[in-house]
Structures are given as structure tokens and as C-alpha cells.
Design a protein around this nucleic acid. Sequence first.
DNA 1: ATACTTGGTGTAAATATACCAATAAGTACA
DNA 2: TGTACTTATTGGTATATTTACACCAAGTAT
Lengths: 229, 229
Amino acid sequence: MDDVKPYFHFGLSIDCVIFGFDQGELKILLIKRNEAPFYNTWALPGNLVHPQEELESAAVRILREIAGLEYIFLEQIRTFGEVNRHPLGRVITTAYCALINITKFHLIPGSLADRAEWVAVSDVKQLAFDHNNIFSACLSHLRHSIRTKPIGFELLPDKFTLSQLQDLYEAILQQSLDKRNFRKKILSMNILIDNKEQQKHVAHRPARLYEFDVTKYNKFLKEGFTFDL
Amino acid sequence: MDDVKPYFHFGLSIDCVIFGFDQGELKILLIKRNEAPFYNTWALPGNLVHPQEELESAAVRILREIAGLEYIFLEQIRTFGEVNRHPLGRVITTAYCALINITKFHLIPGSLADRAEWVAVSDVKQLAFDHNNIFSACLSHLRHSIRTKPIGFELLPDKFTLSQLQDLYEAILQQSLDKRNFRKKILSMNILIDNKEQQKHVAHRPARLYEFDVTKYNKFLKEGFTFDL
DNA sequence: ATACTTGGTGTAAATATACCAATAAGTACA
DNA sequence: TGTACTTATTGGTATATTTACACCAAGTAT
């Protein structure tokens, strides 16, 4: 196998686009680099994959280091392999998209998180490497899949109001939706649990709180149900 | 950078799922391997990426070697990196999906193509490596995107009848569609050119031939048109 | 009690889908 | 030459789904 040796000099990294929804805005988590190359530049959280590590495990590791979260929504988006994308050699990177419920999220002090910051997707400036490309691929992917997969719930607290859900959709899709039609459609899917709870201490009529019913959703899936908003 | 050396021993390959539409059946191109590992086993066409080669160029190279085609529809699907997926070391592979118009396709003798064969997607048996996983990811992806992107036309001759188009959709989606509604919908999109040509020498009423109007489609796209079938 | 804020609801019109069937235009063959 | 055969093309209707649209409800703040 000596003839294939030159083919075994690729580096492999994982970069994560971590989305969160906060104050009605869609945000991503960026990290200010503290080493060369791109020292002091904002970048996506990422790292080299260990020789004996699964790709997804590497992504999970990155998320754990920053956010201490173990079980979060994670999806591979695509691989970026441009020959000169990394100044130190041929490093290809596989992008993962994560969706975080920020109410469960806490930066872990003393870790990568010390240099982390949530940035609204509309405020993302120049990033290190080809991270702007990676970011926009993930954002497009999110905009696309939010319509056909019930991933939006990952970004919300366990209990949420229909208005919050709609705000989330409007923030992601960058368009406003009709309130009545939105509610009609979501409710007709029968994938929300209504615990008869309400908001409290709000200066207006309190809204009902709902939960996403994963079990029911999975049962529906088997019957050929499609989520489509 | 000595400390990162162990991270630069990944191999990278490309595997292609090449779809063609023939005799009303959706098929993929498989190759019988003539070397270890998996000697004599059917596999997806693929190869190691050269150290200075772009990922997509590697995919294009593979397609050129087999089919002599330069400009074909090609899309990255996802990367498979399981630690033990390749017996010879840590080789991760990026899967590409290609759509081929088989009327323009000719196997190139003396090349990989000598060991190539079109196989109906329903007849795909055990493949080498994790190629069954790769194949099914690409097939799912095709089934999904055929509904929202006009990629179906890539699989047909330049001039085709509406029945052929419908047969293609039925073959990919594995369901039958209403003939009149299908035609109504496609024609109302205004993305087909009708050159007033007809089939010839068929033992029945000849069908009209249409062409896909790429220019018009792109113009529509800018206005926010969405292809949705 | 009044202003303020957000929550919650129904109906009519337009569009899309499911379903039905007769005629048209060729070739094959007797 | 004509008759059988095959697939193409077309219109209409009943039903389901999607869209557009405006007002009252239920709390807090003052």
C-alpha cells in the first residue's frame, strides 16, 4: 500500500454552526480565535477530528466543551474541501448544524466559551477561513428544512406559546406569516400538547403554553405523515 | 506544528451515485471491483482524492473516466467517515450524486467502464464498504429534491414527452400520479418549450415533444418562483 | 375605570386535488 | 383498404386545501 501513502495526508476538521433563538432573533455562536492562523478573528467553533474519532462524536465534543450540552439536535450539512482553504495544509472540514434551546444553555467558564459570543445572523461579519461560506450554507439549509421538519421546536423552551413559535418561523424565514393560518395549520397537525397552562405576570392577556409531542409526531411519521409548513 | 501531525493521516475519497433513467426505470451505475479489498464485489464508482485536487474535480474526473461526460449535474450529498468503514485505514468519503441523460452517455471502452453496469435501484444488492448506506442516502435525497428542484430534466433526453416526464416522476417517487393534473401543473409553470415537434414512428398517436426552458426558469427564479410538484 | 398590549378566533374566495371518459392520431396487420 | 391496437390529448366537476382578511378577549399598568 506504499503507493497510496501520499493520499493519506489529509487533515479533517469539524465546524459547527450553532443556532439559538433569543429575543426574537436568530443567532449563532462564534468564537474569537486565540491562536494562529486567523488569531483574534471570529470563527465558527470547530476542531480537528482525532484519528480514532467519529465525525459526529467530534461535533458532540465541541458542543460539550462550549455549552455542556449532551443531547442536542445535530445534523451534518456538507463538507468543504477547497485545496487552499486552510493555510497549514490540506484540511477538509465537515460542517455540522446544531440547534440549541438557549434556556438550557450555559457557557462553561474556563473553556472555549470564554471567548464565545452569540451574534445575530444578520450581524455576522468577516469570519476566519471559509467560515462565511459554511455559515451561509447552514443558514440556507435551516431555512429550507424548517418548512418540512419539526426542528423549530429544538430552538424553543420546552413550553412555548404559539406566538413564540410563529416569531421563530418569521425570524428564520424572514417573512411574516398570517397569524390565524399559522395557528390553524400547526394545531391541525396534532403534534402539540396543551397542558392548559398559561403565561403568568405578562401585561396583557396570557397566552397558552404548549409542548411539542415527540411521541405523537413519531407515531404519525410511521403512518406517512409529513410536517409541512 | 509537530503536535498536529497525527491529525494529518486521513485519506479522502469520493464516491458517486450516478442515476440514469432507462426503460421507465431508475438505475444507478455500479462497478465490479478488480482489486482488494472487496475484490469482485459491486461498488459505487469512486476514487481517492489527489492531494492537490478539489473534491468536485475528483467527482468530475470519475465521471469522465467512466462516461466521458464533462458537464453533468453533480451535487455533494454527505460525508461518511465511520472509523472502520475502510479496511486499509482511516478513509473518509464524500458522496456525490450525479444525474445522467443516458442518451448522451456512452461507456468508454478500456476504462473503468469495462466493469460497469446499470442496475435498477430496486435490484441493488450488497455493495462494498458502506456503499449501501451511501446509495440509500443519495436515493432519499433524490426523492426529496425531485419535488422542489427541476432536476428531473437532467435525466431525460433534451426533447421529451409529458408522459416520459411523468414516468420519470413515478419511477423516482414510487407512486402514480394523475395524468391530467400532472400535465396541468407542469404546463402552468411555463418552463417548457413546445417546438411543435412530435414523436415519429411510434405505433400510436405521436406525442408532442417538449424542451426544458432553462433561461425562462432562471428568470422566474429571480422573481421568487418555486418549482414544486 | 380606562388605556394598553398581546391572545385568540371564523368565514368566504381561490386554488389544488381526485376522479371520471371520450376522442385523436398514428402503426400493425389482415 | 380497413380494422384493431396503442398511447396522446383534452374538459369538467365534486371535494379538499389554502389563502386572505378584522374584530373581540383577557390580562396588566396607571
